[in-house]
């Protein structure tokens, strides 16, 4: 099964941000999406998940050959899609425990019996341990007052419980110190089984030491301007984005209008 993004154009408040994105991710594949700030990486992530503010103006997104662009976000979850947010949203008064339980029950294949509260507790406890998180997490309000690192871990915890087919991880590495980065990266590796296709959005190379992508893509001004293997990320690290974006811009400038 594949997640296919075909010539995707999307706008926010009438302004076109994605200008024809093509990308195909198979289950079991790890892709990294890099690019400077403002290049449209988060816009792609939100558009894939179906944020109502992001309008698809043309192109398509398919999972297993079926278009998902008309589906509400909850229906996309049921198709196996997951997004780890760059900026997770906090919700007052909603306990982590009841939230996780709802997310868990809503991402089971249809017809599966939800676990009892006790079974669920055990399942969560195991995942918390894997991410070096304390059980008191469960008694806090959703993302409320969480540190940057806690929020990112909580996103991976949700991924671990929801077991998606395709996971988009939007800058899950940013704002983490080196220990937290290692824990989160190891978490991502453990959670991504042979059936998970992932798109790891980042603009630093450092997480790629832990999470080894087979494919690296560079986004610039709403398009993927270069794709390659892992070596591409190392080149970017050495030479900076201007190496690639500058070159491409020059080339574009030479084209007749």
């Amino acid at each position: 099964m594949k997640l296919e993004i075909k010539d995707l154009h999307a706008s926010v408040e009438g302004k076109e941000i994605l200008k024809g994105v093509d990308l195909s991710i198979g289950q079991g594949e790890a892709h990294a999406l890099m690019g400077p700030n403002g290049s449209g990486k988060s816009t792609l992530a939100y558009t894939l998940m179906g944020h109502p503010k992001y309008q698809v103006t043309s192109g398509d997104v398919l999972i297993g050959g079926e278009s998902i662009i008309k589906l509400t976000p909850d229906k996309r979850v049921k198709k196996g899609l997951f997004l780890a947010f760059q900026y997770p949203v906090s919700v007052q008064g909603v306990s982590m425990f009841s939230f996780l339980r709802a997310a868990y029950n809503n991402s089971r294949p249809p017809g599966t019996e939800p676990p009892t509260i006790f079974e669920f507790r055990e399942e969560v406890a195991a995942k918390l341990k894997m991410l070096s998180m304390d059980e008191t997490f469960l008694n806090r309000y959703l993302n409320e007052g969480f540190s940057g690192g806690e929020k990112k871990r909580a996103e991976i915890l949700q991924m671990a419980l929801m077991r998606p087919k395709f996971a988009v991880l939007d800058e899950t590495d940013s704002g983490l110190d080196i220990d937290a980065l290692r824990i989160v990266a190891e978490g991502i590796n453990k959670v991504s089984g042979p059936d998970t296709g992932s798109l790891l959005i980042t603009h630093y190379q450092r997480i790629l030491k832990y999470v080894k992508p087979q494919f690296v893509h560079v986004m610039h001004q709403g398009r993927i301007i270069q794709s390659g293997g892992e070596e591409l990320s190392r080149l970017l690290e050495e030479k900076g984005y201007s190496w690639i974006t500058g070159y491409k811009e020059e080339e574009a400038a030479q084209q007749p209008a």
């Binding site: 509400t72 909850d74 997310a103």
Partner: peptide, 21 residues
């Protein structure tokens, strides 16, 4: 949007946000 991205329907989502409030 955040809660719907975790699989909750619009109605379940509103319910959770309201009760949480």
């Amino acid at each position: 949007f955040y809660l719907m991205a975790r699989g909750l329907s619009l109605d379940e989502t509103k319910r959770m946000v309201v009760l949480g409030f």
